[in-house]
């Protein structure tokens, strides 16, 4: 029994190691190759020389686009949450005809390929532009609208999951103790759906930050997102600095994620959103 257990553990460990290798190998190759230095239009791993040269020679456009993406993703997350919190509350708590249909409709953007969404928004912007002279294409607000469209269903999904586990009597209890509608939301509902808010916000941020097709259609000079910039660079003028900026982004993402985990304590929050016992 114990011998079989040990073999089982070793096998499970080997499987996990292989899985992690499969997932992380491409990232390791990029990070390793970014330390090569020298002038060459291709990737070499492991590098034959070690240097931070490509980090020093990073074109300023990369950093600008990174800034655009970060701001856009943050704005997308905030806007998506402002839509998702009331929507999720209505979907879980509401008692109105067509509630199921509303749920399907609100999740619909998940079913539409990003390219189609991009084209649809672009056509709409052309129509709006033609009608009232307001050109949203290439405008940050236009891009933001597109990303909010993509990201909101993810935020709604995260919040609905938390709300469905929410003990139903808690709000009544707060009301019975003298709390009015807003106070109930502020003191009970909001703290308890906080894990959903963090998770939903994070999803929305990631969707916006990593998305290419919609940003490609709706962006323009001055509103080029980081993934679009990388995409264009890969196609037209590959520079090894691409490896450097990608590695930097990776590191920043990891640090942010760890900080969030440490700051909020995902585990305790999940417990707080949990049941009665």
């Amino acid at each position: 029994m114990s011998g079989g257990g040990r073999i089982g553990r070793v096998a499970a460990g080997a499987f996990l190691a292989a899985l992690y290798l499969f997932l992380f190998a491409p990232l390791l190759v990029v990070a390793g190759a970014s330390l090569g230095g020298g002038d060459r239009p291709y990737v070499r791993f492991p590098p034959d020389t070690w240097s931070l040269e490509w980090y020093r020679r990073m074109p300023p456009g990369y950093l600008e686009s990174l800034q655009v993406s970060a701001l856009l993703a943050a704005a997308t997350a905030v806007a998506a949450l402002f839509l998702a919190v009331p929507a999720a509350l209505a979907l879980v708590r509401g008692r109105f005809p067509g509630r199921r249909l509303a749920g399907v409709m609100l999740r619909a953007p998940l079913q539409i390929p990003y390219v189609v969404t991009g084209i649809a928004f672009l056509q709409t912007y052309y129509l709006v532009g033609g009608a009232v002279g307001l050109n949203l294409r290439g405008h940050p607000v236009g891009l933001l609208l597109g990303h909010v469209f993509l990201a909101t269903p993810y935020a709604i999904g995260a919040l609905v999951a938390v709300l469905e586990r929410f003990p139903p009597r808690l709000e009544e209890a707060a009301q019975g103790l003298g709390a009015s509608g807003w106070r109930v939301f502020r003191r009970v509902t909001l703290p308890l759906i906080a894990p959903g808010i963090y998770a939903g916000g994070l999803y929305a941020f990631i969707v916006s930050f990593g998305e290419v097709p919609v940003a490609l259609f709706l962006g323009g000079p001055g509103v080029t997102t980081f993934p679009v910039q990388v995409f264009a660079a890969m196609q037209f003028d590959f520079s090894p600095s691409l490896l450097a900026i990608s590695t930097l982004t990776l590191i920043v993402s990891l640090v942010l994620l760890l900080a969030l985990q440490r700051l909020i304590g995902i585990d305790t929050l999940l417990r707080a959103g949990g049941g009665r016992r």
Binding site: P167, R169, L170, E172, A173, A174, Q175, G176, L177, G178, A179, S180, V188, P191, L192, R271, A272, G274, G275, R276
Partner: peptide
């Protein structure tokens, strides 16, 4: 008169304590 103005203490079957 809404519940919050009735000045009534209530104990629920599942207690409904605030977990946070």
């Amino acid at each position: 008169v809404p519940p919050q103005r009735r000045d009534i203490g209530m104990v629920f079957q599942d207690y409904a304590l605030f977990p946070h």
